[in-house]
Amino acid sequence: MSRVTRVMTTRSRRKLLIPFFTAGFPDYRTTLALLKEAVKAGVDLLEIGMPFSDPMADGPSIQHSSHAALQKGTDLRQALRLVGDLRKTTLVPIILMGYYNPILSYGESRFVSDAARAGADGFIIPDLPVEESLDFRKLCDQAHLSSIFLVSPTSSEGRMRLIAEACTDFVYAVTVTGVTGGGKKFGRETSDYLMKLKRTLGKPFVAGFGVSSAEAAARLVRFADGVVIGSRLIDIVRYSDTTRQGVRSVGRFLRAVRKAVG
């Protein structure tokens, strides 16, 4: 059984908390410290962003962290090294998020096998919709890694089912139409949409994009099986006076969210 499957089957009614960090932001060592701090705060999965020069699904925070990480020379090899370093101390599943071109350039097959060897558990590629992903999914299946696709408020019911079928373990639900970040308001429209997903997907799903507080997270997990928090964590690190303080603040924030989502 894969690490992701184990988490999904043993969680019972526990809601999943998934933090997102950009590899190499603000630097390699701090990313590692942030990820370890998140594990201590009791998160269920880790999402690591592999920086790309043109992140078209991302808002200002993750654009900033990606740009800064690239300035530090972060590449796919470093992101995989980060996974390997993290694996020495934790069994929490690690999902890699990245845009398609760097993966194509690395070589899809080589990338999937190197990621598996480093200890990664799955992938999210926001600019690779299900229709274009057949080859990549086959590679993931062979390596026993999860492929996770995004479903959006604009997805038709037919597509929701198609996406759920393509996802191993769980589906990633984009909360509202838009890019990542921005502290979104989740009103009636969002809850209606999440309830529709529950009826349609037939698979667990986590909600993400614009989740910026413990309250927002708690509200979403009334309908979803978990939440992903990214931009807010990037902002905490970015606006902290020192990186040590940033790591501590992230830990404090994640513990508060953990408590709120149950």
Binding site: M56, A57, Y100, P126, D127, L128, P129, E131, E132, F149, L150, V151, S152, P153, T154, S155, S156, R159, I163, V174, T177, G178
Partner: peptide, 20 residues
Amino acid sequence: RKGRFGRYGGRYVPETVIYA
């Protein structure tokens, strides 16, 4: 029909705009 010119083209975009 899938928007391919040989191996080129296609639709590599976030799910949100697929419907559009």
